[in-house]
Design a protein around this nucleic acid. Structure first.
Length: 668
DNA sequence: TTAGGTGTAAACAAAA
DNA sequence: ATTTTGTTTACACCTA
């Protein structure tokens, strides 16, 4: 069966390395270029260029960070590993240049393996960048059109009234103004990213725009803007429905309903982005407190007004005088609203497009079922033997334990940082010492697609994976072969070196008491003894004290979230966000989660068994289904019950559609 | 430093 | 006879 290839591979590898670590490195194949140089440069598409820039930026960041990490930990790194990394280092940039719009799984993997960013984080980052780029592009296109129009008009009526040409040019300038605004927005966005430590590069993508906006004389602009808006308002007023609320910018409906679709289709991305928005807005709010959104660098940011002020007071005065509540201001606000709506629409569209792209590239992206039904969780949690700390229904998987640890740089694991959601899994499967208690954290759920399509080693222990596989099955029991199939189906990584990991699986099954072999009618099947599983030595946040410290600081919005924190956050926050669609995830809840995480991490005292921790591993909050009639496995029954937990981790359910390998499987 | 968890490799045996 | 399934042992790493 599909073992041959794997065996051979393993063998060859085995000779080359002497220990697991090295072996793993060897497994990774760095397929660097699958680049399709033929990135279609459609006519006048600056977008491509901009996207390239965005991608490049992201990659540069990755490379940079990776480099730093390498330096920092070079001592701990095995030479073999670091050597392997070389190729990876060189690839990204060149590839980026070639296929800016298409991120192949391989590229993705490479990037991920550099562990700076998690799949989602990367996606999000790119997505955001792209969205911004698109915004720019859109405006630029618009601007071009205006220019063309202007030329046409000028040609047609070169002796027309001054009035007309002036109007045209004013429009043009107005757009320039808008470009400026978008640019600012973009800068803000970049700033935000930078704050989060996600982007350490210069926001030079903006440069092109500057060219456009340069040379506009503020005073003139202001004047022109006024005229333009006055004319615009007339036309747009009719189209604008909520005109009467002109002053209420917030009324601008953020995203068309369509976005729901988008979210459903791509829960992950959608969610993240919404978080992103949230986060950004919060940042904005922050600013608002300190200064004023319309006041930056001593300049009035009111559309068309670039008045300069020495101090905030005079600015305020100016606001009251020049931009008071009058027809003109109202009209300008409306225009601005239109602009915003337009951009949002475009953004939504592009998000959708991006999602489609991602979906396409990932072959089968299952639409994640939007929301985990809390119901199951609740009931499960209560029943669960882990009951004590049973997790609150909504916070599914909070696993206090740290599953992810980002620290290990090298390993192939990826990490995730979603800028927006902060969630990141930066894990690295450092020796997988991660989570015990938590089987497969939400991380896997969130990154399911990623793991399924990318040859990256999942940051989970074999035991956790095996458990997950078993628990996912309808009967909560699987034959060895079914477990194998689950592995290959769920993780691209396990589609190779079968001999190695299969051996490991068997080894784990035999070794851990938590896996109970049960003789079935059809043969033997394996079940999970949850109690035993939970008994394993609890582990808190893994990582140095320094990490913990970092976590604390990051709570205060430190510049950069330490990986470990992000990792743990991922565990906690993800679930929260996941449920967002149902409930309302709030920053508070996130904060709480963080706090919990920290508490858990800091006081080892209460760690008693993995269960005491508050958020245990409810994800899989197990609900223990009554054991099937006959006691499975009479012998070693220490526990009261050989529980077959039936956690229905909803998230994991959709895998059923993967029939890829022999399907004799449980087909749930 | 030690103990335990984990991954990998490998030897063996029993069952299919 | 070969393959699959299980069990064990050994060893290297890592973390608490």
């Amino acid at each position: 069966m599909m073992q041959e290839a794997g065996t051979a591979e393993a063998t060859s590898n085995g000779t080359a390395k002497q220990n697991g670590v090295a072996a793993e490195g060897g497994l990774r194949d760095i397929r660097s270029k699958s680049a399709t140089p033929s990135s279609d440069i459609t006519a006048a598409n600056l977008m491509t260029l901009q996207q390239q820039q965005a991608l490049q930026v992201a990659r540069q960041l990755l490379l940079k960070q990776q480099h730093q990490q390498q330096q920092q930990q070079s001592g701990a790194i095995k030479s073999s590993k670091s050597n392997e990394k070389q190729p990876a280092l060189q690839v990204p940039v060149s590839v980026a240049m070639m296929t800016p719009q298409v991120i192949t799984p391989q590229q993705m993997q490479q990037i991920l393996q550099q562990q700076v960013l998690s799949p989602q984080q990367l996606q999000l980052l790119l997505q955001q960048q792209q969205a911004l780029m698109l915004q720019q592009q859109q405006l630029q296109d618009f601007y071009k059109k205006q220019q063309e129009q202007l030329h046409l008009q000028l040609l047609q009526q070169h002796h027309g009234s001054k009035q007309q040409s002036k109007e045209v040019s004013t429009q043009q300038l107005a757009f320039q103004q808008q470009l400026l605004q978008v640019q600012q927005l973009q800068q803000q966005h970049l700033l935000t990213l930078q704050r989060q430590g996600l982007l350490s590069i210069q926001a030079n993508q903006n440069l092109p725009l500057h060219a456009f906006t340069q040379g506009v004389i503020p005073a003139e602009l202001q004047q022109l803007w006024k005229e333009v808006t006055s004319t615009h308002v007339k036309e747009e007023n009719s189209a604008s429905n909520n005109g009467h609320r002109g002053l209420d910018l917030s009324s601008a409906s953020p995203v068309p309903p369509k976005s729901n679709l988008l979210n459903q289709h791509a829960m992950t991305n959608g969610q993240y982005s919404s978080h992103a928005l949230k986060r950004e807005s919060s940042v904005l709010d922050e600013h608002t407190h300190h200064s004023h959104p319309l006041y930056a660098h001593g300049v009035c940011k009111w559309p068309g007004c670039e008045a300069v002020f020495e101090d905030f007071q005079s600015f305020l005065k100016h606001m009251n005088n020049e931009h008071a509540l009058d027809d003109r201001s109202t009209a300008q606000c409306r225009v601005q609203m239109q602009v915003v709506q337009q951009l949002e629409l475009q953004l939504a569209k592009d998000k959708e497009r991006l999602q489609a792209m991602m979906t396409h590239l990932h072959v089968k992206s299952t639409e994640p079922k939007p929301c985990p039904q809390p119901l199951n969780l609740v009931s499960n949690a209560t029943l669960s033997k882990t009951a004590p700390g049973a997790s609150p229904p909504l916070s599914l998987p909070q696993t206090p334990t740290t599953p992810t640890t980002p620290l290990t740089p090298l390993s192939q694991t990826h990490s995730v940082i979603t800028p927006t959601s902060l969630h990141s899994v930066g894990p690295i499967r450092r020796r997988y010492s991660d989570k015990y208690s938590m089987p497969i954290s939400p991380d896997i759920v969130q990154n399911k697609e990623f793991y399924m399509n990318t040859d990256v080693r999942p940051p989970f222990t074999y035991a956790s994976l095996i458990r997950q596989a078993i628990l996912e099955s309808p009967e909560k029991q699987l034959t060895l072969n079914e477990i194998y199939n689950w592995f290959t189906r769920m993780f691209a990584y396990f589609r190779r070196n079968a001999a190695t990991w299969k051996n490991a699986v068997r080894h784990n099954l035999s070794l851990h008491k938590c896996f109970v072999r049960v003789e079935n009618v059809k043969g033997a099947v394996w079940t999970v003894d949850e109690l035993e599983f939970q008994k394993r030595r609890p582990q808190k946040i893994s990582g140095s004290p320094a990490l913990v410290k970092n976590i604390q600081t990051s709570l205060g919005y430190g510049p950069v979230l330490p990986a470990s924190f992000q990792a743990s956050l991922a565990e906690n926050s993800l679930p929260l966000y996941t449920t967002a669609s149902i409930g309302s995830p709030t920053l508070n809840s996130l904060a709480n989660a963080i706090r919990e995480e920290m508490n858990g991490a800091m006081d080892h005292g209460n760690s008693n068994g993995s269960d005491s921790s508050p958020g245990r591993s409810p994800l899989l909050a197990m609900h223990h289904i009554s054991v099937k009639e006959e006691p499975l496995d009479p012998e070693e029954h220490e526990g009261p019950l050989s529980l077959v937990t039936a956690n229905h981790s909803p998230d994991f359910d959709h895998h059923r559609d993967y029939e890829d390998d022999h399907g004799n499987e449980d087909m749930l």
